[in-house]
Amino acid sequence: MASSDRSVGWLRTNQGVAACLVVAMLALLGYLLSQDWVYQQQRDGFRLGFFTMVSALVMLVCVGFTLIGKQKDQATPEMARMRGSDWLRGIAALLTMLVYYVLAWDAHFSQDWVRAILDVIPFTGDFLIWTVVFLTMGMAVLGVRPITSAITAGVIVSFVIFGLFLLIGIDLPQSVIGQLLGTSAA
């Protein structure tokens, strides 16, 4: 399943990754042990944290086996290929999705500061506009050229999704178009 290429850094081998995971698992266990609810006894005698602790311990044991197991010197091809910047790219993609969600749905997660920022930005809570922006940007960043085709694709897909959801009867945040059509609720 994996390459045992010597050129792969130790941190990328099963052992290296497992070492990081061991640290993470120990931190998790430490966190759990410091929590009051873990020890709270229930009416059937079980402690509230019993099964959570069991799962955390099993995770630790499994990570331990990976650390010292037969395949410890191997690295998965994906792990060997991934660079730090790739992880950042992944996280950036997820954050972009979060921002898209917050803008398109006007979601503030009960946070006043998010609310304050959203109040300044125009068109928050407008599904169509932000979906077009998100899709066009995404396609352009990933390499769709010329930009006009990214825009065209973004607009068409957004409208198709909006139309389909309208047909099924699932609410998407109101939009300028929706208000013009009279399909969105105030």
């Binding site: 009416r43 799962s55 099993v58 499994c62 197991g69 395949q71």
Partner: peptide, 26 residues
């Protein structure tokens, strides 16, 4: 890789315990 499979299973158990206790709902 058996240990990784079991790690996955344990993760599922851990995530599964998030929420309400089945007896007391706490």
């Amino acid at each position: 890789h058996f240990a990784k499979g079991m790690l996955s299973a344990a993760m599922g158990l851990f995530i599964g315990t998030i929420g309400a206790d089945p007896v007391s709902s706490v």
